[in-house]
């Protein structure tokens, strides 16, 4: 179960706007899914270690060698807004 307030909190963490008319239906859908997920509570997992990665990799590190960076115009090309050779964003302090 997830209620309206929890949904708003999670949406806030995920930076997703939700319209008023989306709230109840979304909360209901998520609750159905979460209830189904919760069936795994039946499983006894005592002593079972979590798996974060499958497979073994021995040499996952990179040697400290410089590789060419992107030309600036290429880096900036897809940006929605650019100024002074940088990515322009609304100020975090702005209201």
């Amino acid at each position: 179960m997830i209620d309206r307030d929890e949904l708003l909190h999670v949406a806030r963490l995920a930076r997703l706007a939700l319209r008023d008319d989306e709230l109840d239906s979304t909360a209901a859908e998520l609750s159905t899914i979460l209830d189904h997920i919760a069936t795994f509570d039946e499983l006894d997992l005592g002593g079972v270690e979590p798996t974060a990665h499958v497979g073994d990799v021995d040499d996952s590190l990179r040697t400290d060698e410089v590789r060419a960076s992107l030309p600036r115009d290429v880096a900036l090309a897809p940006a929605p807004a650019v100024r002074d050779d940088g990515f322009l964003v609304p100020s975090p302090q702005g209201e």
Binding site: A75, A81, R83, D84, D85, G86, F87, L88, V89, P90, S91, P92, Q93, G94
Partner: peptide
């Protein structure tokens, strides 16, 4: 690095910053 860009973003009067990666 986030640099303050002053009060003339794309939107009139909005305060903006410029990101340098």
């Amino acid at each position: 690095k986030l640099n303050h860009a002053g009060a003339s973003g794309r939107i009139e009067g909005a305060d903006s910053s410029i990101v340098d990666f």
